[in-house]
Amino acid sequence: MSTTESSSKYDNLEKMPLFDLLKNINKEDQTVPLAVEKAIPSIQKLVEEIVKRMKNGGRLFYIGAGTSGRLGIVDASECPPTYGVPHGMVIGLMAGGDEAIRKAVEYAEDDFEQAWKDLQAFDINEKDTVIGIAASGRTPYVIGGLNDARKAGMLTGCIVCNEGSKVAAAAEFPVEVVVGPEFVTGSTRMKSGTAQKLVLNMVSTSVMIQLGKVRGNKMVDMQLSNHKLVNRAINMVMEATSVSEEKAKELLDEYGSVREAVDHYMQESN
């Protein structure tokens, strides 16, 4: 039996006092970052290869099913507003398509061929990277997609929560984060999902930093798409240039991003 399907360390959950339920869920959650830490060398290797491809014009694709697929879509969708990259640079795909984001599509994940069809709709090429996300490590949609992508010359990686899985075997750069039995037996949206989210944070953030999308510790290319982000940008420009709030607003209105506003101001000042 796979680790993700093994029986919970806890039993009679329906009889457990609410405080104990919450405390024990939290106790299990605290083990997840330690499991992710063990996988850092594998994550590093994957990120290094992704950056090489993306510096040459490549894109990053996530493929998954269920919770894993949704996590990939969330990570991909947050890259443009956070780092100002084009929407087609990081793409999340899941078994069952967009409909499955909100409602499970029966048996969609059992199709070995569909992921490759979904990827081909984006004219995928050898510059691109495909990361398969599957807690179990045995999702047909992910296995098939990785196998086909690897045959076609794409860089392939994966994020799984079992050792020695078929998904890991299909990926050139596998990341295995073994978090142990779930609090509710087999409910991989819990610890496994948390582990996948942590790894995705690490992958996309470190990739974007390596691509120059962060200056110091600031998101200088973020999209100014709401009042909160505009106010954050104003403060960033003020901090970097020592100009007034009014002047910072003027610079952002004129140049559209923190990076451009600061760079143009510094050039003009010199």
Rank of each mutant, 00 (worst) to 15 (best):
M1H: 12
S6F: 11
K9Q: 08
K9D: 13
L22V: 10
E28Y: 10
V32Q: 07
V36A: 06
A39W: 01
I43Y: 08
K52D: 04
M54G: 00
L60D: 02
P81E: 04
G84C: 08
L93A: 07
D98W: 10
R102W: 13
Y107S: 14
D111G: 09
L119A: 02
D123V: 09
N125P: 03
E126C: 12
T129R: 05
G132M: 00
G137Q: 03
Y141P: 12
G144F: 02
G145D: 08
R150L: 08
L155I: 03
I159W: 01
K166R: 11
V167D: 01
A168I: 04
A170H: 06
A171C: 06
E172I: 09
P174K: 10
V175A: 01
V179A: 13
P181I: 15
S192G: 05
T194E: 03
V199E: 10
N201L: 13
M202L: 10
V203N: 15
T205H: 06
T205V: 07
G212M: 00
K213W: 02
K218W: 06
D221R: 02
Q223V: 09
Q223N: 10
Q223Y: 07
L224D: 03
L229G: 00
V230P: 02
V230Y: 05
M236D: 13
S242W: 12
S244A: 13
K247C: 03
K249L: 05
E250I: 05
Y255M: 12
R259G: 07
E260F: 07
A261V: 08
H264S: 13
Q267R: 12
E268Y: 14
N270Y: 03
